[in-house]
């Protein structure tokens, strides 16, 4: 698989480390009253879809940036690659 890095261009997936579903960006609020339930879901439960999957890859052997890769889990086709930083900021994180 080739990951088209937004800053570095096409890179071999071997240079990256895979973390999992990009919902891991949305860390629950630890002070919320239902925090225990939210953290259980956040840590352990996954949609695990057959088809389009937004997922976190870390460019360990490169610029060490986190990417959100949209990839089809049935065909392995990658349709979009974003910087995780941009994705998190667009959701109002890390202002």
């Amino acid at each position: 698989m080739i990951i088209n890095h937004p800053l570095l261009g096409p890179r071999d997936a071997q240079e990256f480390v895979y973390l999992g579903d990009a919902t891991l960006i949305d860390r629950p609020d630890w002070q919320a009253s239902e925090a225990l339930d939210r953290f259980y879901e956040y840590l352990y439960l996954r949609d695990n879809p057959a088809g389009m999957h937004r997922e976190l890859w870390f460019h360990e052997q490169g610029d060490r940036s986190w990417l959100v890769v949209t990839r089809n889990t049935v065909t392995h086709e990658i349709t979009s690659v974003e910087l995780a930083r941009d994705v998190a900021r667009a959701r109002g994180r890390s202002k």
Partner: peptide, 13 residues
């Protein structure tokens, strides 16, 4: 292989 997959085939690395 280390990434979510339903493809029943892997990659070269």
């Amino acid at each position: 292989d280390g990434y979510n997959s339903y493809a029943q085939r892997g990659n070269l690395p």
